[in-house]
Design a protein around this nucleic acid. Structure first.
Lengths: 195, 195
DNA sequence: AATGCTATAGTCATATCTGACTAATCAGAG
DNA sequence: CTCTGATTAGTCAGATATGACTATAGCATT
């Protein structure tokens, strides 16, 4: 949530903009950097204005509905530098949603698991391919660095997955045994999930 | 949010448990897998019970306050397999919070940026070290795989960061130029953030 | 000159999540 | 025995986030 604030301040630091503009840019170009949705952005802008980090003036173009153009204030710049420093210096341990699936890999028959992991691998490969084709100097922001970073992580992910699949294919016996070892608990009522 | 449901179902599939038990385990052992908090878990358990995926019976131990022991139902097992399959097959493009910072790296003087990135690198290294010392067969679940996966990603992260720092140190001129190029917009009111 | 379509600009009711709290039991110190 | 602090078990008000919606303007088509 602090990163979202940082993002908005950073964008306004580059250029004063109205809400719609900010949201369009985020939606179209920053899908990899944030998943903040429109209403959240408006809410944060309101809060930032309350706090004096940005201010807004109404602007009328033609006789379209008037829109609020937000500009960063001196106070906002200070907040920006503070948030940026904090964000750069720290490394929040990330939580990867898909990892929950790995925890229960042994609940599925090996064949099924392999099929699903191969699907996942396809998806990851597609993501790598896509990100490698994003043109450099994408938007003049440091978005390039983010793209690089994400590409590096995605490639690591691809490599790991590939190796996992190979391992599972090569040692079905061993992995099956591990799966057994993993549940010394009571066999419980029904056993229908078919492990 | 679906992963959270999957996690709870998966844990109950292994063994019937009461809420407190589930939460303790998550808090102490699954910090890397999920960041779900206690009240969220209770809310999801309620919802799963409404939906018939789990049921609960009250259990009294000594004369401590009675507690609800949740058990997965046949319906719940089916849901579990479905969610697990979906999760394993897909690869949601992850959003790394810290990446927002990278976007605005050029807003700081190079020296400052380097100092901050080095701090980040320290943190990442500490995380790598920590994760490499987690004992294997940690809890008998597939948690091992998750640990491996996260270790792989963390090492990739470390390598990328190291290389970024080297690049920034080696080519201060070029990077400084890029920083200039990055903002052909208006110089705006105050220029106090000192870029 | 009415119709439908897209872009613009934002709002709001609802769903979701969590920090802070309640409340009972137990174990040990004095 | 009774006070203190830890453990167990959970709840709830309030903060956050978002899907779905409103509403106007411009433009092309018929």
């Amino acid at each position: 949530m602090d990163e979202r604030t940082l993002l908005l301040l950073g964008m306004l630091r580059i250029e004063s903009q109205h809400g719609y503009q900010l949201n369009e840019f985020i939606e179209h170009n920053l899908g990899r950097v944030t998943d903040m949705k429109k209403p959240t952005a408006y809410a944060l802008l309101d809060r930032l204005e309350q706090a004096g980090a940005i201010n807004s003036r109404l602007e009328q173009e033609g006789n379209r509905p008037p829109r609020k153009v937000y500009a960063i204030t001196e106070q906002g710049r200070q907040l920006f530098v503070r948030l940026l420093s904090e964000t750069l210096a720290s490394a929040e341990p990330y939580v990867i949603a898909g990892d929950v699936g790995l925890m229960f890999l042994d609940a599925l028959p090996l064949e099924d698991a392999l099929k699903l992991l191969e699907q996942r691998l396809q998806t990851v490969r597609a993501q790598v391919a896509e990100i490698e084709h994003v043109p450099a100097h994408h938007m003049g922001l440091g978005v390039d660095l983010v793209i690089e970073h994400q590409a590096a992580l995605l490639r690591a992910d691809e490599a790991w997955l590939t190796q996992l699949i190979a391992r599972l294919q090569a040692q079905p016996a061993k992995e099956a045994k591990e799966a057994k070892d993993a549940q010394p608990a009571q066999p419980s009522t029904t056993a229908a999930s078919g492990a």
